[in-house]
Simulated assay, not measured.
Amino acid sequence: MKLGVFTVLFGQKPLEEALDYIASKGLEAVEIGTGGYPGNAHCNPDVLLADESKLKAFKQAVQSRGLTISALSCHANPLHPQKAISQADQSLILKTIDLAQKLEVPVINTFSGCPGDSDDAKYPNWPVAPWPPDFQEILDWQWANKVIPYWTETGKYASDRSIKIGLELHGGFSVHTPATLLRLREAAGEAIGANLDPSHMWWQGIDPVQAVQILGRAGAIHHFHAKDTTIDPINVNRYGITDMQPYTNMLDRAWQFRTVGYGHDLKTWADIISALRLVGYDYVVSIEHEDGLMSVDEGFTKAVQNLQQILIKEPLGEMWWA
């Protein structure tokens, strides 16, 4: 496995400066945003696809520092009921796939998106209960008319270019659990897989080790984010896991994102890393830093230090004792 980082947290730095800093920490890979929620501070697909010399310089900037690009990330909502939003996000995803092909990056990461409750809707509608029956009817309509058709077509576009799509299992979107990911993968093809982030498993009450096992046995883990979560034992009883308070209300929230090792101990993280190796995932562990209690530098540095202790890096050898 290789240790990497989602470079969006260094978006205020020029690309070369950010890459120098990342390389100085001993990392081997970078995940770079191309637009959508992560922004495109370091990688604008329109610019790079239109200018071969700029594309070459971009690739050289990464490679000259001994780094590889693990994924291009364009987290967005391509199923948004407002066409101006969905069409822009769909275009971004296709451009990111095209750019990944040119850069020989095997994976792009994004969200599945979430439609509205009808063709006349203005806002996404995320059903989270099977009753009253309206919610189940909305869910069935969304999957049959929006989720499966869009991702079947986009999955084929990616597959034709030898690119895999890592969907982040994130609350608020149609694909947010191992089961919903596997449902879409079965319908839309094996180009669809997970960008698995344990932080979103924990707050939904899902054990990340079991999520790795479930998805890994199906060969459905395309990329992996390293981010932690802590659940407040008092606040969760007041607000529940679907706490709608802003992330900035850290003292009162039911749960919050933390850097690796500050929500769960390193034994738990070692179990996750071991589960990844067990199911055959030997790609990049990409740090995502969204810890509201730590600066960018401190949160990132602590994540690096903690993960370097437990990452399994060497190739498997023979079981000499068996």
Rank of each mutant, 00 (worst) to 15 (best):
K2R: 15
L3K: 13
G4L: 08
F10K: 04
F10S: 01
G11D: 12
G11E: 07
L15G: 04
D20R: 04
I22Y: 03
A23H: 10
S24C: 06
K25I: 00
E31T: 14
G33S: 13
G36N: 11
Y37I: 15
G39S: 06
G39W: 07
C43N: 09
V47K: 09
A50L: 02
S53Q: 14
K54T: 00
L55Q: 05
A61E: 08
G66R: 06
S70F: 06
S70C: 05
S73A: 11
N77Q: 08
L79T: 09
P81N: 05
Q87E: 13
A88R: 15
D89R: 03
I93G: 02
I93C: 10
I93E: 07
L99I: 02
A100V: 02
V107P: 08
V107H: 06
I108W: 06
C114V: 06
Y123V: 12
P124N: 14
W126P: 07
P127A: 05
P133M: 02
D134F: 12
F135L: 14
F135V: 03
Q142W: 07
Q142P: 05
I148G: 02
T152I: 00
E153K: 13
K156V: 01
S159V: 04
S159H: 10
S162R: 12
I163V: 01
I163W: 00
G166S: 08
G166R: 07
L167M: 10
H170D: 14
A179E: 15
E186T: 01
E190H: 13
E190K: 12
I192P: 15
G193S: 04
L196R: 02
W202K: 05
W203T: 05
Q204D: 09
G205Y: 11
V209F: 06
V209S: 05
V212H: 00
V212K: 00
V212T: 04
G219S: 15
A220D: 11
A220H: 12
I221A: 06
I221S: 09
H222P: 15
H222I: 03
H222F: 11
F224C: 12
H225G: 06
H225C: 13
T229S: 12
Y239D: 14
P246W: 00
T248A: 08
R253L: 09
R258S: 05
T259C: 13
T259R: 15
V260L: 09
G261E: 11
G261P: 15
L266Y: 10
T268Q: 12
A270F: 11
A270H: 15
I272C: 02
I273A: 05
S274M: 01
A275R: 12
A275L: 12
V285K: 08
E290T: 01
G292T: 01
L293S: 11
M294Q: 10
G299F: 04
T301M: 05
I312G: 02
P315C: 08
L316G: 13
L316Y: 06
W320C: 08
A322K: 15
